[in-house]
Design a protein around this nucleic acid. Structure first.
Length: 382
RNA sequence: GGGGAGAUACCGAAGCGGUCAAACGGGGCAGACUGUAAAUCUGUUGGCUCAGCCUUCGUAGGUUCGAAUCCUGCUCUCCCCA
């Protein structure tokens, strides 16, 4: 079943020493320069950040939303009445919505899986709901993200082979239903949407390879790798990414879901990944952890109490050059909401800077050396 | 002046003869966080030559095999009445 190309992906350069690539993905809400990091905005908000700062200061090119969360609250009728998520949350750049597959995993104890789909209880009020590949596509049509994700099952990192295989096959059958529904329906708000399949297979190379070859048949506009960074060893994640990117078409973007640390991002760019998302810069920022080009800081540590230097002299955000470490520590230790906002803004600006710099290095083919130098700094505890 | 209550670790506050280095909360310190049920969660918080020992429950004595816990003096705090 060939799919019409909805989103152009232009490959601009590939590293001479690895699979790292730089490209441009075009959506109706703008172009995305890859590799890219996508801030996570689960409930229709990148927590604590105004869309103006997201765009102008952080320079995010695309953000995420979540089907499960938006479906439960505010509810799809509200999003439709608003004219789609872009209108609702005042973000006019590209949006990608996750399908709720991850919630099937993370809310594991309040859901029940069947061939039909996933029956689950709302974490908000305990009410019962059913997600199927079909209604998840419908909901994502209503939310109106530029990129929508297939409904999958995300298995825990320690799943045994039999379960991993069974689960992968369920995800594959669901994928057919997702594309059927996707082709039966159309975008609601006058711009195109693309559907990305998700490669599962847990930590088993043969399953990953089968899954990668299976998703290729759909000739999608991009391909995602899911079910990683869910408890398996870091080296295993890299191995799985290598197995999968070796199989996926080179002329389409690859999205590694839910990853990761700054180190994970550089390592996976090196292995041919183009798109990333992760809650780490936002959540860890709210919890007082800062990622910088010189290393990792726990802002709650006493050592910053009287450090009146700027947050990050190399930082990409205005917050880095406006506030001091001592002040930010005070805000975070005091539980002041501005502390969480500043830390989040810093971390997101850093993540975006990191992938932008990686892109620049891929374009001039100095990525390998730069990555090696950066890895030493990025993992340092300050 | 008379009557009453109380003083516990950084703060608040339990404990009222042994199982108390002392519950619980706050604060402090540290750690975790990877397609967000997270502005959350966990650990730790007298000292040391650390599976043991030493010092500690206002202070000075006393009773007891044994006291934060019982008795006496002292110091201080709070409340009520004049």
């Amino acid at each position: 079943m060939p799919q019409n190309i909805i989103m152009e992906f232009e490959l601009k350069a590939t590293s001479s020493e690895s699979r790292a690539r730089a490209g441009i993905l075009s959506t109706d809400h703008g172009k995305i320069e890859t590799p890219i990091f996508m801030p996570v905005g689960t409930a229709g908000t990148v927590k604590g950040v105004h869309s103006k700062d997201l765009k102008e200061d952080i320079q995010a090119q695309i953000i995420l939303g979540n089907t499960y969360h938006l479906y439960l609250r505010p509810g799809i009728s509200v999003i439709e009445a608003a004219g789609g998520l872009h209108k609702f949350n005042a973000w006019d750049g590209p949006i990608l919505t996750d399908s709720g597959g991850f919630q099937v995993f993370s809310l594991g104890d309040i859901r029940k899986l069947s061939e039909e789909g996933a029956k689950f209880q709302s974490h908000i009020d305990g009410s019962y709901h059913m997600f199927t590949p079909e209604n998840v596509i419908d909901i994502q049509r209503s939310i109106g993200a530029d990129i929508v994700m297939a409904f999958d099952e995300c298995t825990p990192g320690d799943a045994d082979y039999a379960y991993a295989k069974k689960s992968m096959e369920l995800t594959q059958r669901w994928l057919h239903r997702c594309f059927d529904q996707f082709h039966k329906t159309e975008a609601k708000y006058g711009y195109e949407q693309a559907l990305f399949p998700i490669v599962q297979g847990n930590t088993y190379p043969d399953l990953r390879k089968l899954a990668a070859n299976h998703v290729k048949e759909f000739n999608a506009d991009g391909y995602a790798i899911g079910g990683l960074s869910v408890g398996e060893a870091e080296e295993v994640m890299y191995e799985m990414v290598e197995v999968v990117t070796a199989e996926l078409p080179v002329d389409k973007p690859r999205y590694l879901m839910g990853v990761g640390t700054p180190k994970n991002i550089l390592e996976n760019i090196d292995r041919g990944i183009d798109m990333f998302d992760c809650v780490m810069p936002t959540r860890n920022g709210r919890n007082g952890m800062l990622f910088t080009s010189e290393g990792i800081l726990n802002m709650r540590n006493q050592k910053w109490q009287n450090d009146h230097s700027l947050i990050d002299i190399n930082g990409a955000s205005y917050v880095d050059h406006t506030y001091t470490k001592a002040y930010l520590r005070h805000l975070i230790v005091s539980g002041e909401m501005l502390g969480a906002q500043i830390a989040t803004q810093h971390n997101l600006a850093f993540y975006i800077w990191l992938v932008k710099e990686a892109r620049r290095r891929i374009l001039d083919d100095s990525f390998a050396a730069w990555k090696k130098e950066m890895l030493i700094k990025l993992t340092r505890r300050l």
